[in-house]
Design a protein around this nucleic acid. Sequence first.
DNA 1: TCCAATAAGTCTTGATTTAAGACTATATCG
DNA 2: CGATATAGTCTTAAATCAAGACTTATTGGA
Lengths: 161, 161
Amino acid sequence: MDRMRWNDLAKEDCSLSRTLAVIGDRWTLLILRDAFLRVRRFEDFEASLKIARRVLSERLALLVEEEILKKVPYQERPVRFEYRLTEKGLDLYPAILSLVHWGDRHYPTKNGPPIVHNHLNCGHDFRSVLACSQCGEAVGARDVAVRRRAATPRKRRIRAS
Amino acid sequence: MDRMRWNDLAKEDCSLSRTLAVIGDRWTLLILRDAFLRVRRFEDFEASLKIARRVLSERLALLVEEEILKKVPYQERPVRFEYRLTEKGLDLYPAILSLVHWGDRHYPTKNGPPIVHNHLNCGHDFRSVLACSQCGEAVGARDVAVRRRAATPRKRRIRAS
DNA sequence: TCCAATAAGTCTTGATTTAAGACTATATCG
DNA sequence: CGATATAGTCTTAAATCAAGACTTATTGGA
């Protein structure tokens, strides 16, 4: 049987597949977590994550190519770049925060969550809640019905009689 | 240098690390996507994902061990089980939906998103919005300040003089 | 001038993980 | 009995990753 290769995932007709084709490997979300915590330089990512340099280099290059991070020079002679989140990268915040809060809830540490998030607008520490863009109410898995849109047909199986 | 091994990740003092130690490999979120779409049996996961059977078997076992899925018998003689989301698994919905909507937005397909989500309570198709648990307002990456709580010290490096 | 340090990588080798597909186990159906 | 169905396990080869040495460019100090 023909299994899925990782590089085919980007061509799938599913938004999650295409998302995971970019950020779904074992390291990328941790790199982005650090980026949200203002880690910006190659060696700082390496020290923070204890990731192999070759892998870090490759992942950062992909994130730049996908415009999730951008390289910004922070000195001349020699030119050195740091990696910063783009708007597209910042848009991943809800997904990452949801994963963090799921971990806070289901794999708690003795002393409570190691990082607390404070909402600047209202001043309170908060957890993330998934809300409906139309009515603003909280949404759980059971409150949602899924509708598949007619996909362009891809393969047709003809059954011999 | 001592790199991070994947199995050490669960011991890290970071909720995202502990989360990714369980669901952060290349396949698990796709398995869970299928579970949310009501795929339940081994062979259906295999056909849907085109994943190698050995890997599927191993991932399902881990998800059951972590109580994200549970095995429920659906027939006797021979006993056959199907895999269903637990409450803990259902709690992953916000994170997965956020990833899906990020993909919808940044990797759109020609004909619009392949799956539309309808909020049963209000009746509208919707996108997910990250909201603050305290004030209910939408939250973006720039609206949040992070506070690190004092971590219990784990290693002490003694520098010879 | 020469040597060490800094930053950001690349390259090589051996270990780990994954893909492909054959094989196993159990029970029903014809 | 033999074929089919479901849910796996096992083996081998391919792909990916970890560890750490090596490279390049420049600055600063002895």
